[in-house]
Design a protein around this nucleic acid. Structure first.
Lengths: 325, 325
DNA sequence: TTGTATGCGTTATCAG
DNA sequence: CTGATAACGCATACAA
């Protein structure tokens, strides 16, 4: 592995000159330049990026923390992150944590070790207090609407969106409304839950524990809801579910139970993934990919932000009416 | 940012001793050790991983090249790669290429620059000849059954699997069989196409160009097939599709066209993703996640492979009979 | 336009 | 058990 020093020696110039040629700096005579190129050719030279990064003190790498890449929601965020990162010549380091705090901590430790320039938390299990300890080691962007002012965040107003969904269902004549969430804890889920409880109180509906379905992320979880629905004494007329995958599963199970949608059970979900379009599921679209893109631009512009006012970005949502409500 | 030198100075020891403490080397007296710890505490010391990597000449990073993370197939591979990589304390650098050779080349160039220890090609557009030029810069693992001996590969025997699928359909009485592929070019698709043509010749069936559906990857593509099917003069009685997403889309469209499955059109797909289980789609399971895992172990063991006999790993497949055939 | 010298932060060798 | 010194490979301030 030839290095810059050997190139310099063979080309009969200084290391600096080689470096200049390498980085397209001006003020290098054509003769020296070609001598350097020739030497590089001869010694089969390869730049060592890690050395450059060490010397410059940056890595052009962004760490991305998420529970799993297999869920469309996170696939989408990563897609957005990747697209934007590529534009700015950043690489992406993926941390699949499966919501294990030890793995999330590992990502933070690598940020501390300067391996990456910054971190994007797509979702987290670890407490904000712990994350705060790593604040000095680089920009950390949160893709959630947590009640904090420490970190920039990109988020969907989950509380309003959930409330909006409930109001839409109510406007369609429903009052007996069930709901599902992706996680029991977790910022987004908590916000949604709060919105639900608030709204039900508003229309004088009791909170029925058996109308709340937890840990619902996949198609399978949606089918599970369908089977539980069947055994329910008191049946809801509508359900607001955590995402399109769950809605798809529920719809499949409902059709097998000979339930009509929306007549027997209306379904409204979130995300607007391709599967919801294919199955004509009414859904509330949230700009997931855009969230990923903004996370990257926010990170890159982190240092030249004079005011901290625009550190918390809130995206919008949009109702997509199809035929399950 | 305090460094090892400052720690040494404050602790009143040499750099070497600090390094020893940092790396849990033996032969350091307790007093010096605690002095070093104290200094580290005082100066708020953080190790610089890039410096370590430069010094050691390794990065513990694996580059993963794939067209998009949004497709379940690749999500699955990455899941496998991530799980195995984590075990061995490797990080993953993601390259979303969208099948653009320039982006694939970028990944190769970063391998050349020693940014990663190795590369896994989950799928590629770039020619093998170009990849070969980067062979010396680190282990490159191919997740495909290409006709080459240069690189280790993990693959599904697509030709046999496709053939097996066709034979299964034939055994169910079908002779008029359509098929879809994910890509026009691409190693796997080419293999599948070859298997199809061979089998059709065997049972004396003509090759009908309009029974071949290309570029089929998503649910939407599957629905598209359904719409095209409707307008077909000569209709096939069965179709072997590229993956479960496509099958799901086709099944949805078929049901909207009031077509019965498998009576009017039998559907057999590949992968055995959750969606196929949910929709009772018959499919040929291939161990995608396992492929990712093996790619990592192969890469890690790359150097201590004495013989090259086990460099090409072929995985198996398995028919999952459900109700679309 | 070119080169010298120093820094980036750590590990490894070798002598003591 | 300990430490000086040389890598690792490159960038850059400063001097010429």
């Amino acid at each position: 592995m030839a290095n810059i020093r050997e190139i310099a020696k063979l080309a009969g110039v200084s290391i600096t000159t080689v470096s200049r040629v390498l980085n397209d700096h001006p003020y290098v005579s054509e003769e020296k330049k070609s001598a350097v190129y020739k030497a590089m050719e001869e010694l089969n030279y390869n730049r060592n990026i890690k050395a450059i990064q060490l010397s410059k003190g940056v890595s052009n790498m962004i760490g991305v923390v998420l529970p799993t890449i297999e869920h469309p929601y996170f696939g989408n965020i990563v897609q957005g992150i990747a697209e934007e990162a590529m534009k700015h010549h950043y690489q992406i380091v993926l941390f699949q944590t499966n919501y294990e705090t030890s793995k999330e901590l590992e990502a933070l430790e690598l940020l501390r070790g300067n391996l990456m320039d910054g971190l994007v938390f797509c979702s987290r299990a670890i407490s904000l207090d712990i994350i705060k300890e790593y604040k000095e080691h680089g920009p950390i962007i949160l893709c959630e609407d947590a009640d904090q002012e420490e970190f920039p965040s990109i988020s969907i107003p989950h509380e309003q969106a959930f409330q909006f969904g409930l109001e839409y269902l109510i406007s369609k004549g429903h009052t007996r409304i069930a709901y599902s969430l992706g996680r029991k804890e977790g910022t987004n889920s908590t916000k949604r839950r709060k919105a639900y409880e608030h709204k039900m109180r508003e229309i004088n509906q009791p909170l029925r524990e058996e109308w709340f379905f937890n840990q619902c992320l996949s198609i399978k979880d949606g089918q599970q809801i369908g089977r539980k629905y069947k055994d329910l004494h008191e049946k809801p007329t509508a359900i607001l579910v955590s995402n399109d995958q769950v809605a798809a599963g529920l719809l499949i199970e409902a059709s097998e139970l000979r339930l009509k949608t929306p007549e027997d059970i209306a379904i409204l979900s979130f995300d607007n993934q391709p599967i919801s379009e294919a199955m004509h599921i009414s859904t509330i679209e949230i700009p997931i990919k855009e969230m990923g893109r903004l996370a990257v631009t926010t990170m890159i512009n982190f240092n030249d932000q004079t005011n901290s006012t625009d550190k918390k970005i809130t995206l919008s949502f949009r109702l997509v009416e199809r035929s399950t409500v």
